[in-house]
């Protein structure tokens, strides 16, 4: 190592640090011990280094910088807390909406006895029931129904009075007897099917939200078009397969 190389390496030598552990710096320091010229240069260099380090370390942060950093941090923390709160709020709202969306329609259905009643009666009509009494005699039907504590004092709409009567059955609805009177529209029926027009009569008090006495309410339930109305103490449900017009002809 010559003097020029040694000076180059000693430029990055800071007394009192680990710089001397660097092999090249260490070798240059060893050379400085035997070279008066290099030793003199190193002494001046070290003094100059001390001055320059002092100058660099005189750099002072402007007043208020620390406070500004802390203030910005506090503001960012508040903003983060607000965002977190907003996120939690949105999550809670989403959960509530999802819960309501899942629960609301079934609850509405379960809370609507009329809808439940309509669904149940339509399932009976479509489910392959067996008539308890096969007859086309209205008097026999009323007698059978009365005998079995089912409504027998019903009033038939005039068109229905002239429709072919096939028989009747008795079913239950929440502890109340339901009269099922079966008719035939005259359309061709599949083998083994005796009826395609059904009238259900039940005590209106047994269905919580039975409609007020006025014009029939039409609704499609499963494959049937139904008309529901009240008269006296009875709730009537008439159902048939086909369009609404097919049903209306039995109510005029």
């Amino acid at each position: 190592m010559n003097l020029v190389d040694a000076k180059t390496h000693l430029l990055r030598y800071r007394p009192g640090t680990t710089d001397a552990a660097d092999p090249l710096v260490n070798e240059a320091l060893a050379l400085a011990k035997i070279s008066p010229e290099l030793a003199c240069w190193l002494e001046a260099q070290s003094a100059g280094l001390t001055v320059l380090r002092g100058r660099f370390r005189q750099i002072a942060p402007p007043a208020g910088l620390k406070e500004q950093i802390l203030s910005e941090f506090a503001a960012s923390q508040r903003a983060m807390a607000r965002r977190r709160l907003l996120g939690v709020t949105l999550a809670v709202i989403c959960v509530l909406v999802a819960t309501l969306a899942n629960l609301w329609p079934p609850r509405r259905a379960t809370e609507n006895p009329l809808v439940l009643y309509q669904n149940r009666m339509v399932r009976i009509a479509m489910g392959g029931y067996a008539m308890d009494l096969l007859t086309n005699d209205p008097g026999s039907i009323r007698a059978y129904l009365a005998q079995h504590q089912a409504p027998a004092d019903f009033t038939l709409p005039v068109p229905l009075q002239h429709t072919a009567l096939m028989g009747c059955a008795v079913r239950d609805w929440r502890g109340a007897r339901v009269s099922l009177i079966c008719f035939r529209t005259g359309k061709p029926l599949p083998p083994g099917v005796a009826s395609d027009l059904w009238l259900f009569v039940v005590d209106r008090a047994s269905v919580g939200n039975a409609p007020n006495p006025n014009a029939p309410q039409f609704a499609r339930v499963s494959r049937l078009i139904t008309a529901t109305w009240t008269e006296g103490n009875n709730l009537y449900l008439l159902g048939v397969q086909g369009p609404e017009s097919d049903l209306r002809q039995y109510l005029l």
Partner: peptide
Amino acid sequence: FYAPLYQFAFSLTRAEADACDLTQQTFT
């Protein structure tokens, strides 16, 4: 650490505003 960081930032930028920004950004 804010003072030594500022010193380093000022050594690099030689502008007070830039050095403050760099120091601030570092802590952010």
